[in-house]
Amino acid sequence: MLVPPNNILRSPLASSLRFIMSMTKSVARGPVSATIEAKLTAAFSPTHLEVRNESQMHNVPTGSETHFKVVVVSEKFRDARTPISRHRLVNDALKEEVAADGPVHALSIVAMTPEKWRERLDKGEVVGPSPNCKGGDGSLPKKNEVTI
């Protein structure tokens, strides 16, 4: 009687959601992630928000919160027509975090309106991880560095 809604399960939206969930599950959330999420939620009332801690891709101690990618989908970007103006809005919302003396060393941003996000999902596009580390600039503690 009840037919499994295969068409829904196989839709780009469902596969994107599965991908997103698999990403968020794998990384423990720390205080910096929580602050970023709270600030972006307050600033943009996003219809979709991802705060990905990508620090484990870099040579920093386990559990670090230094490298992030955020995906922010919000109506608030409707008037910000250029990529740079959208990115500036996100950078402004997180200015304490990304400041030179703040906790975040790298921030990758994907910011768009719900329509653009929908178009992207319909095309089956996903937001992939950031590029691989190339060694870093030596300003952060290393994964296996012992501090005395």
Partner: peptide
């Protein structure tokens, strides 16, 4: 960060 020959960061690369 780094040079064209040796970028020191994935984003710069």
């Amino acid at each position: 960060k780094g040079t064209k020959l040796f970028p020191q960061c994935g984003f710069s690369n």
